[in-house]
């Protein structure tokens, strides 16, 4: 006789163990990722003496753990997602105010309103009026990331459509070279790219990093977009054309709406790539001709007369914010993306 109850118990226990071990493992590996960010935020909002203090980090972690614990407990007891979320947030907020309320301040963010922050800190002599207001760097970064995103999305969409739908001499070689190009580290190209940019006369302009980054990103994004186009059935396009649409109309009205997810996904990636870029931004200027957020952060961090880590962290928080917001809004599109196109 088979003891069904015993088997069921065993299977239930195995499932619970598996889930527990998995949760524990994921929690452990996320600690080294999450803690530095939490620390950065805590320094930005609490540091008073310009030091990288840990004093407020531990209470902050305690607040987060308590909030998560309340969230988990309420979810387990009531099963209502919204209630649990509110309860966890309220716990965290209340505990945070009690433990950290007196330490929080916005003084480290004074660079956002003071256009001459470095001169004020270190004296006219050191900076000599070369250092910009943070918003200048911020908007340069926006222009760099934004225009590069627009070019990358447009070009890779059109190129990928052609590669997906038309056969031409050298098509497979072209596709292979798209992948091979990814195998070379872009950093090895810094010197030739610098020379080309110099000869073309774009050195010390924002055009240089825009064009260079676009060129470096295109192969991979074309490849990804091709996967999305491959997933759109031929029938639909033929149907649109027999319904009276020209090829271009069929592309606009029927095919493009179906690869929207892919366009958003590569757009987000291209934007974040442009937003975080440092090497090709710093490498393609010889003085302080233009500033972007990464070079601004680097300069703030430079140890001339002792670093104000409170401000460095505050700049970093401002720097991370747009990418984070973008990512949160587009998260559902990004998770639909795989190398082969749209997931079922």
């Amino acid at each position: 006789m088979t003891d069904w109850t015993a088997l069921a118990t065993r299977s239930r226990r195995a499932r619970q163990t598996r889930l527990g071990v998995l949760t524990l493992f994921l929690t452990l590996v996320s600690i080294p990722v999450a803690v530095p960010y939490i620390w950065m935020v805590m320094i930005a909002f609490t540091a008073r003496r310009g030091m990288a203090e840990t004093g407020t980090l531990w209470p902050a972690l305690l607040v987060i753990v308590a909030g998560l614990a309340v969230y988990g407990l309420v979810l387990w007891r009531s099963g209502r997602e919204r209630t649990a979320l509110v309860a966890g947030a309220l716990t965290g907020l209340g505990l945070g105010l009690v433990l950290l309320g007196n330490d929080l301040h916005l003084n480290n963010f004074r660079f956002m309103v003071n256009a001459n922050i470095i001169e004020d800190l270190k004296g006219q002599a050191t900076a000599g009026g070369q250092f910009p207001w943070v918003w200048e760097a911020f908007f340069n970064s926006l222009i760099l990331a934004g225009s590069q995103t627009i070019i990358v999305v447009t070009v890779s969409t059109l190129a990928a459509y052609y590669l997906s739908r038309f056969s031409f001499r050298g098509r497979s070689a072209f596709l292979q070279s798209l992948l091979v190009l990814q195998a070379f580290p872009a950093i090895t190209l810094v010197i030739p790219i610098f020379l080309i940019v110099f000869w073309v006369g774009l050195l010390n302009t924002l055009y240089a990093p825009i064009l260079v980054l676009t060129a470096l990103e295109l192969p991979f994004f074309i490849f990804i977009m091709k996967g999305f186009f491959d997933a759109v059935p031929w029938d639909i396009e033929m149907s649109a054309m027999t319904d009276g649409a020209s090829r271009r109309q069929a592309f606009w009205m029927v095919v493009l709406p179906q690869v929207r997810v892919g366009m958003i996904a590569i757009g987000v990636f291209a934007f974040i790539k442009g937003w975080e870029e440092y090497v090709f931004v710093n490498g393609l200027r010889t003085g302080n001709s233009y500033w972007v957020m990464s070079t601004y952060l680097y300069y703030v961090r430079q140890d001339v007369m002792g670093v104000d880590y409170g401000m460095v962290a505050a700049v970093a928080v401002l720097y991370v914010l747009p990418a984070l917001v973008l990512y949160l809004f587009c998260q559902k599109y990004l998770t639909q993306m795989t190398l082969g196109g749209v997931k079922g």
Binding site: D235, S239, A240, T242, S246, Q258
Partner: peptide, 20 residues
């Protein structure tokens, strides 16, 4: 004559409806 000017209606095996 291009497909769009032939005034032909077609029903595909996959129906090819426009999902958007």
């Amino acid at each position: 004559v291009e497909a769009r000017h032939r005034n032909v209606g077609i029903v595909f095996q996959s129906y090819a409806l426009y999902p958007n």
